[in-house]
C-alpha cells in the first residue's frame, strides 16, 4: 500500500492519468478497428521525429534556466540550414549533413546571444524566452520574404522571389536519415531505424556530457547557483553553454523532423513548436528544475503516443476529431501542473 502511495507521489497524478489514458487507447484500438501495428509504427516514427527537440530541453532545465520556451530560435537556425541545403541542391544523406552543417554555426551564434540575454534577466527566463521565440519567428517571416534564395523549388512561382510557406524536400533528402536500415514488418509496421540511431546517439552524447566536469558543473549551477559560485564555477558561462547546446539540439531536431515529415514549414510554422517539446519532457517526469534522459524518452513516447492514438481511436469511437482539443488540454495542463508545483516543493 505504502509503495503504491509513494509511487503516485513520485510520479504525480497527471502523469499516471496520462499513462493510463494511453494504455486505454491501445486497449480500445482493436475494438474500433484501428490497427495496432500501424498505430505503434506511427507512434515510433513520431517519437523519432520529435525526440531530439525534447532532448533540447534537458541542458537548460539542468542549468536552472527553466523550460526553453525559446526553442523556436534553434528551430529557425535549423530552417536556415535546411533551406540553404535545398538551395544548393545537395541530395540524400549529404543533403541532410549539409543542412546540419550550416545550421550548426548559426545555432551556436543564436544560442550565444540568447544565452547572454537570459543571463541579464535571471528569474524571468521563461516568459522572456517565450516572447523572444515569438518575435524571432515574426522577424524571420520578413527574412523569408527578403533573403535572396532563388531555387525554383522554394520560391513563389508568380513572384519569382520570397520563399513558399511549405517546401517539399522529397526530391532532396526525405528519409535520408530515417531510411537508413529501416525495415517493414507486415504491411503496416515501419521502423525508422536511422532516426532511432540518431536520437539515441544524441541521448548518449548528452548523457556522456552530463558526466564530464563541465556537465557536472552545469547541473550544479541549476541545483544551487550559490554553491557552484563558491566552488569557483562561472555561473553565467555555464548557463550560456546550456542555452547554446539547447539551441543546437533544437536546430538538429527540426532537421530530423523535416527529413521524416517531407516538408520544411516556414513563416509561422515554428511558432508553437516549443510547447509540445516542453509538455513531453514534463509528462516524462521532469520538473522545472530537474530533467534526465529517461524523462525525455518516457515523455516523448507518452505524449506522441497520445497524439497518434487520439485522432484514430477517439474518431472511430465518437466520429469526431477531438484530438486537437485533447492535445491542447493535455500539453498545457501538464505545463501548468509543473509551474504551480515547483513553488510548493520549495
Amino acid at each position: 500500500m505504502n509503495a503504491i502511495k509513494n509511487f503516485i507521489e513520485e510520479a504525480g497524478w497527471p502523469r499516471i492519468l496520462i499513462a493510463a489514458f494511453l494504455v486505454l487507447l491501445f486497449v480500445a484500438a482493436p475494438f474500433v478497428n484501428v490497427r495496432l501495428d500501424a498505430s505503434l509504427s506511427d507512434t515510433l516514427v513520431r517519437f523519432g521525429m520529435n525526440g531530439v527537440m525534447v532532448l533540447a530541453m534537458v541542458p537548460m532545465i539542468q542549468s536552472g534556466c527553466g523550460l526553453n520556451f525559446g526553442l523556436p530560435l534553434g528551430i529557425i537556425a535549423g530552417l536556415l540550414g535546411a533551406v540553404t541545403s535545398v538551395e544548393l541542391g545537395v541530395q540524400g544523406f549529404a543533403g541532410v549533413c549539409t543542412a546540419m552543417g550550416i545550421a550548426l554555426p548559426i545555432a551556436i551564434i543564436f544560442g550565444w546571444g540568447y544565452g547572454l540575454l537570459l543571463n541579464k534577466v535571471k528569474g524571468d527566463e521563461m516568459m522572456i524566452a517565450t516572447y523572444v521565440g515569438f518575435s524571432s519567428v515574426a522577424i524571420m517571416c520578413i527574412m523569408w520574404l527578403v533573403l535572396p534564395y532563388s531555387s525554383p523549388n522554394m520560391v513563389w512561382g508568380y513572384a519569382g522571389q520570397g520563399l513558399r510557406t511549405t517546401i517539399s524536400v522529397e526530391e532532396f533528402w526525405q528519409n535520408a536519415i530515417g531510411g537508413i536500415g529501416s525495415f517493414n514488418i507486415g504491411e503496416f509496421f515501419y521502423f525508422p531505424t536511422g532516426m532511432f540511431v540518431f536520437f539515441f546517439l544524441c541521448c548518449g552524447l548528452m548523457a556522456l556530457f552530463m558526466r564530464t566536469r563541465t556537465g557536472t558543473a552545469m547541473t550544479t549551477v541549476g541545483s544551487n547557483p550559490e554553491y557552484a559560485r563558491a566552488s569557483g564555477v562561472n555561473i553565467d558561462h555555464m548557463r550560456t553553454l546550456s542555452v547554446i547546446i539547447s539551441t543546437v539540439l533544437g536546430a538538429l531536431g527540426i532537421i530530423i523532423y523535416q527529413q521524416s515529415f517531407g516538408f520544411i514549414q516556414l513563416y509561422m510554422g515554428p511558432f508553437y513548436m516549443a510547447f509540445p517539446a516542453v509538455a513531453a519532457i514534463l509528462i516524462g517526469g521532469a520538473s522545472v528544475k530537474k530533467a534526465s534522459i529517461v524523462n525525455v524518452i518516457v515523455g516523448t513516447i507518452l505524449f506522441q503516443g497520445i497524439l497518434t492514438m487520439t485522432p484514430s481511436v477517439i474518431n472511430s469511437m465518437i466520429q469526431t476529431d477531438m484530438s486537437e482539443v485533447i492535445r491542447i488540454i493535455v500539453s498545457n495542463g501538464m505545463i501548468l501542473y509543473a509551474l504551480t508545483r515547483v513553488t510548493k516543493v520549495k
Binding site: 520556451f69 521563461m126 516568459m127 517565450t130 510547447f275 482539443v325 485533447i326 491542447i328 488540454i329 498545457n332 495542463g333 505545463i335 501548468l336 509551474l339 504551480t340
Partner: peptide, 12 residues
C-alpha cells in the same frame, strides 16, 4: 508565465 499557460489551457 503561469497565467499565460493557463490561458492556453482554458482555451482547450
Amino acid at each position: 508565465v503561469t497565467s499565460y499557460i493557463l490561458g492556453f489551457f482554458m482555451n482547450g
